[in-house]
Design a binder for these strands. Structure first.
Length: 762
DNA sequence: GTTTAGGCTTTG
């Protein structure tokens, strides 16, 4: 059969290719050689319309690209006669094609098309054969019902795109405009991609159906486009939707589940695709700028542009060119915000909710091209509004200025509105948070928001232990000798760091050193280095642990070894089990922490398992990485863990594990500098806090968004941004003075102690 | 069959 469709099942061709055929690379194709038993394989990147030659012979020309990534990576295939007709019926761009029994001839167009100097000629008469690994149609579900078929799509790196081709590709979103109403008949979305080749591609995507455009929610998302047309525009390659265009979108965060977002009912997505996404994520994490934490209304400052994830509570038409959206995100904007007057009958939304949340919602005015989309939004839906402008202004009848929220017309900087699905993790998180805020709100006595209370109440009680002490003025404290303890009443004029996540450090209580929390990349790097050393089989399955080894399914075929520390309940309660792992990635390790109590990364030496470098966590439990002090730790044999395991129900406390391993554990701590004033003077007091002050464990804040929001709100309450000194609330707290000798200079420092921010303040 | 927009710029 000269033209045959093949399938790939479990990585093997089905039916198999004739065994006498051998593959030949593009670079080995030279005129004059014998190719009787050779075949060439490539991906169809271009096919010309089928025509008839002067003598009536059918003729069909396609271009195949190999995966060599060489300068010349494509070749023309000329197909004659019945074979041309057969091929034209089935071959589509993106198919993988095998050509056997070809004749090699000089290509007359090589100079113009930049392809291989020769072309391949095939026909039934010459005894040629063509095998095709076809892509399934993405439009009908029935065709993908033949499940065992693994269709072979080829993906073009962004630096190998050629004008006039239709390709499949992957990319990381570097810039995007959420779908907006174009001046034509369709929605439009502009997406700029990058990949490991560092090449960029801007794609202009059109579709009359909003749902058919890629569901990109933030920069860093990863997309897979099928059948996108490549054109040259202004000297650069440009992508544009072609018929049959389909897309998948993935979250770009390393370690999150690889779940495609798409409107396609039928699509292929398997291990290989998952691998590609994960590789792009890892590349992006180390090669592209990381975005900071998402903005919240509590973090809003005047005169900036930001993206807001929020829920729509109300909407109203204002005039022909602007539309009002009332939204909230559960946090309170620290500034007075503007209220856009609208007719009550124009305001859509649940009246009681609008009233109840009146101090937490903000008015956003959407202009011009955004009006149509804004109008169509459903009350209660979750939105991400991109590039909102905050503007400070004051009306004539106002004493203080307010902040206005504008979504200006146009789409530059990706300005626009995106609707997030309920399944989006950010929405799930926001929902939980909003519910907790509403609950707290409904519980407050006078149905006044607790957040509103503190802004009207002028003095904040910061609860302390030593209620017997009386207040001392700051001036008196500054003029006194250290060390002493005081109760003070003061205002928090300013504090550092302003970026709250920067306040978390690691502290060694033995040598009193402080260090930054290593970032995730350091851990990945150490794991990568360790993975080079193979696990020593002689150390597997001893008296106190059971070892299991396996090979990863990906191309790298990595070996991972897990040593389960034995104890009675091991099989009954995986959630109580401690395990040691060799050769895993941080993602795999995090996955294990979800199932098991403790995970200790180790590596093999000749004689024993040992911990990794102490720049890596010695233990992972829950969402927390536990680190040890490099100076103060004297590592003990890993076998010491067996004595802990011998206990009937081991608690696996990090401190106990650290002790058994000879590790001096580092503790997570908040370090902040508070500048306090009280009218008699000012002083800087340090906050050194594991948990007590904010009622938030410092160890958990880096992995918990709720806690980060809680902390931000606490700081906004203690020091509302943009407020004059007179309007700041009073705080009561304890400070102690102490001496630090630096050379022969002695200096007095102050530290906040025994102070807790009262529950009802936040 | 094939317009729309074509990011590198924001402001009522």
């Amino acid at each position: 059969m000269p033209v045959q469709l093949l399938k790939i099942i479990k990585g093997k061709s089905e039916p198999p290719l004739p065994s006498h055929l051998q593959r030949e690379d593009l670079k080995h194709l030279h005129a004059g050689l014998d190719y009787t038993n050779k075949y060439f394989q490539g991906v169809v990147i271009l096919s010309y319309p089928q025509t008839k030659l002067g003598d009536g012979t059918d003729f069909f020309k396609i271009v195949l690209q190999d995966n060599s990534c060489a300068r010349i990576d494509s070749i023309n295939i000329l197909i004659y006669g019945k074979m041309a007709d057969d091929c034209a019926k089935v071959i589509r761009n993106g198919d993988t094609c095998i050509v056997a029994g070809f004749k090699l001839a000089k290509s007359p167009t090589a100079r113009e098309d930049g392809r291989h100097g020769c072309h391949l000629e095939v026909s039934e008469e010459a005894g040629s054969a063509i095998y095709i690994y076809a892509q399934p149609s993405t439009t009908t579900a029935s065709e993908t019902a033949s499940v065992s078929v693994a269709p072979k799509y080829a993906y073009t790196p962004l630096n190998h795109l050629k004008d006039g081709t239709i390709v499949n590709l992957y990319g990381i979103v570097k810039f995007f405009k959420p779908p907006y109403v174009s001046k034509g008949t369709d929605y439009c979305s502009v997406v700029t991609l990058v990949d490991q080749s560092n090449a960029k591609l801007t794609c202009t995507l059109f579709n009359g159906n909003l749902d058919s455009l890629p569901k990109i929610y933030k920069i860093g998302d990863i997309v897979r486009f099928h059948r996108i047309k490549i054109r040259e525009y202004n000297g650069q390659m440009q992508g544009i939707t072609s018929s049959g265009f389909a897309s998948l979108t993935f979250d770009g965060t390393v370690g999150t589940p690889v779940v495609p977002r798409t409107s396609s009912k039928a699509y292929t997505f398997m291990d290989e695709e998952e691998k590609t996404v994960e590789e792009l994520r890892i590349w992006a994490a180390s090669n592209l700028p990381i975005s900071g934490p998402a903005a919240k209304l509590s973090g809003v400052r005047p005169m900036l542009f930001f993206d807001l994830t929020c829920q729509l509570v109300g909407k109203a038409k204002v005039d022909g060119s602007s539309f009002l959206l009332k939204v909230w995100d559960g946090t309170k904007c620290p500034y007075p915000t503007w209220r856009i007057p609208v007719e009550a009958r124009d305001l859509e939304g649940e009246k009681s909710l609008l009233h109840r949340l009146r101090n937490l919602t903000v008015d956003i005015l959407a202009y011009d091209n955004h009006v149509q989309l804004a109008k169509s939004l459903k009350i209660g839906s979750f939105l991400r509004i991109y590039s909102i402008h905050t503007k400070q202004a004051s009306a004539e009848n106002e004493d203080v200025s307010h902040v206005e929220f504008h979504l200006h017309g146009g789409t530059c900087y990706g300005r626009g509105i995106g609707v997030l699905p309920e399944s989006h993790p950010d929405v799930k998180e926001l929902k939980t948070f909003l519910e907790s805020v509403e609950l707290a709100d409904s519980q407050s006595v006078d149905s006044m928001s607790s957040l509103e209370l503190d802004s009207t109440c002028n003095s904040i009680a910061v609860l302390t232990d030593h209620q017997d002490l009386s207040n001392t003025e700051l001036k008196t404290i500054r003029n006194s000798r250290a060390p002493q303890q005081y109760r003070i009443r003061a205002k928090l004029k300013t504090f550092k760091p302003q970026k709250l996540y920067q306040s978390v450090k690691l502290h060694c209580s033995k040598c009193n050193s402080l260090q930054e929390v290593p970032n995730g990349d350091t851990f990945d790097l150490i794991l990568q280095e360790c993975a080079v050393t193979p696990s020593n089989p002689e150390l597997h399955s001893t008296s106190w642990y059971e070892s299991v080894m396996w090979t990863t399914q990906d191309q790298k075929q990595r070996k991972i070894t897990i040593h389960f520390v034995k104890h009675d309940e091991m099989l009954l309660y995986p959630e109580d089990t401690l395990l040691m792992i060799e050769g895993g990635t941080s993602k795999e390790i995090w996955k294990l922490t979800r199932r098991f109590k403790c995970v200790i990364p180790v590596r093999s030496t000749k004689n024993d398992l040992e911990l990794l470098d102490l720049s890596a966590p010695f233990l992972l439990q829950g969402k927390v990485k536990y680190y040890g002090c490099k100076q103060c730790s004297t590592l003990k044999p890993i076998k010491n863990l067996s004595s802990l395991a011998a206990e009937p129900r081991p608690s696996w406390e990090p401190t106990e594990i650290a002790q058994a391993l000879g590790i001096e554990p580092l503790q997570y701590v908040f370090i902040m500098k508070f500048t306090l004033v009280d009218g008699t003077g000012a002083l800087n007091a340090y906050l050194f806090d594991y948990e007590k002050f904010f009622q938030i464990p410092a160890s958990e804040i880096l992995s918990n968004n709720f806690l980060q929001q809680k902390m931000q709100m606490t700081m906004n309450t203690l020091s509302p941004p943009g407020r004059k000194l007179d309007d700041l609330p009073w705080l009561e707290c304890f400070i102690k003075s102490y001496n630090i000798t630096d050379g022969n200079k002695q200096q007095v420092y102050y530290q906040i102690f025994d102070t807790t921010v009262a529950e009802d303040v936040v």
